[in-house]
Design a binder for these strands. Structure first.
Lengths: 348, 348
DNA sequence: TTCTAGCACTCCTTGGTGGAGAGTGCTACC
DNA sequence: GGTAGCACTCTCCACCAAGGAGTGCTAGAA
């Protein structure tokens, strides 16, 4: 663990805040003028040389100012930065934007992503709730061909999933209606994670052994849930905001980044990992990230849903020099509020 | 109408194909060497001067080669270009890519957009079928709160729409099940466009006047369909391909374009217009477009679905100098094949 | 010991210059 | 009508010099 004096910390903080603001390397003179502590540039230079030796700052070239390294940013985030509180007004804005859109969970999540991107002037990401952790609410079988059935599966949080399955025999809609009723009765309110066991168990019951219809119903339900569990989606909004950052003026770099965003599966993997890693706000800075293409970027993320069983992840992706102090509380609040909204629709 | 000699046409075509390939202004020498007609550069220059006078070509600056104007491209597309046929292999590729994904219409459309973008190395767009033109298949009411009902509406093509409505009174799921069955019976197979009238008509029938339940069911169905009709979605994939075009190396320009893509409603409006304008392939070149931000781009689009009642629009957005001759058949074939796939799922 | 002032030095940035190259228009000629 | 030649224009690029920002180091002050 690196131990810094008070002055070292102040200088590190000054460099970082200035760098976050301007995106340019910052020199000793700037800090000396800006900072509260009345110290000459020469002194600052000495401190900065020390910080560089510790690997917290670096100089792009000999006669340039310093910029923070990933290590420096990490130290700053962990032990120096105090994140600003959100103003009441901003909270209100976010609340309204999310509350006026209760139509459909998909829309809700997409709006959330958009709001994050707008408030933070970066790219917003929201990982679609993994169904695994929600509860069964309703299932519906609909005939769309002689042997093809569309299955609509609704989880308690109001998420609708659909999938197609093939049946082994011809079926008519009346049968399917019966099946729906039966399965609904059986699985009501169960967490999806244990639904499978329940189905297997039921398969062995007398009722099912005597009636083919029920057996088939269970089979279909099982298949449908199987299909659904692997579902995971991610909403990425505000990619164009990235172009506002001078560090992405380089077209080739920008191309790589956009390309990465288009391969959603990799983003999903990344977000999934953060979910496993921690419960609250989670920050990945630059090279801490294992996606090659995003090593010049940071991700500020937070799970949402119930604290003990998170539904998904939301966050903001931006350049290394994001305004962490401002964005962290936004992500935090949005996650909290989105959780509330989802819990509300989850109560009955 | 502009009348060109054979030679004028050949030169215009040569300029355009060369420009499409390189993105650079093309000079008289290049054409003289490249083209089949054995004519000296000086002669070409004369022709080119004529074409410029007609507004078909322009010179970025005095001592540069020529590039085609929008007017020139238009003339070329309308009366000179012969679009290449798709090779069997390519058709097969597209077929496979679309056929292996029958899971869900949403996925299907998104894949279509991605395939377009990959094959054309530009940005693919697919406008989600307007529900209006499809037929009613199935409705389902699901209680998600004391007065809140989730409505799942499925159209014959297999599109699932969901919406929430508030009921005036408390309801239980049994009632809702009855309502579903009743409405399903009533509306089976009707085009969504006339469903509303049918509902109003039924409202006046004895059955409904005597039983409140039916009345409420019809009201809910009406509301749900109302909500759903306004639904329109667009899938845009492969935006990063745009960055490969040297003309978009300018960050500010790129920013504007990405920004436009993020405001989906404008893209929807644009695509909607092309649907009204024509039945087959439709091309909008640069300034023919009324979206300010897309005036440096072209759109090649085609409706899909049944020829008489199109479901939606798909197409490719790229720079002015897209390889029209190659992309047009791709768009054409994709539209045709997507229509087939959708019609297949639509048959029962 | 700690801080500061001064100075020489490094490196980037910017602006200007000139030559090479590409392409044109014009004119005279076939 | 087509072609060859030529003078002219404009861009692109490499090169250079000056200016500026910032540093490290050293010597002296608190």
């Amino acid at each position: 663990m690196i131990k810094l004096t008070q002055r070292d910390q102040t200088v590190l903080e000054a460099v970082i805040t200035d760098y976050i603001e301007t995106g340019e390397p910052v020199g000793s003179r700037t800090i000396s003028k800006r900072s509260v502590m009345n110290v000459s540039p020469a002194t600052i230079r000495n401190v900065m040389a020390d910080l560089e030796e510790l690997g917290l700052l670096l100089q792009p070239h000999t006669s340039a100012g310093r910029i923070p390294t990933v290590k420096g940013l990490r130290l700053y985030l962990d032990s120096i930065m105090r994140s600003r509180q959100l103003e009441r007004e901003q909270r209100q804005h976010i609340r309204e934007a999310l509350q006026n859109r209760p139509q459909d969970v998909k829309d809700l999540l997409q709006s959330t992503s958009r709001i994050l991107s707008q408030y933070c002037r970066q790219t917003g990401v929201v990982l679609w709730p993994k169904v695994t952790v929600t509860r069964f609410k309703h299932i519906e079988f609909i005939r769309i061909g002689p042997r093809q059935v569309m299955v609509i599966l609704i989880s308690k949080a109001g998420l609708v999933h659909q999938t197609h399955i093939e049946s082994t025999e011809e079926i008519d809609q009346n049968e399917l209606d019966k099946s729906s009723r039966y399965v609904n009765e059986l699985l009501r309110g169960l967490p999806l994670a244990i639904v499978k066991e329940r189905i297997l168990e039921e398969m062995r019951s007398e009722k099912v052994l005597f009636d083919q219809l029920f057996g088939r119903a269970l089979q279909m339900a099982g298949k449908a849930i199987q299909n659904t569990l692997s579902d995971s989606e991610v909403y990425i909004e505000g990619q164009s905001n990235l172009l506002d950052n001078p560090e992405f003026a380089d077209v080739a770099r920008m191309r790589r980044i956009l390309h990465t965003f288009e391969d959603k599966s990799r983003i999903i993997k990344l977000l999934d990992m953060t979910m496993k890693a921690s419960t609250g706000i989670h920050i990945i800075i630059g090279t801490e990230n294992e996606l090659q293409e995003l090593q010049e970027m940071s991700l500020i993320s937070s799970p949402y849903g119930h604290p003990d069983r998170p539904l998904g992840i939301l966050g903001v992706i931006g350049p290394l020099r994001m305004d962490y102090a401002r964005i962290i509380p936004v992500v935090e609040f949005t996650a909290k509020f989105l959780s509330q909204v989802l819990e509300l629709t989850d109560e009955n």
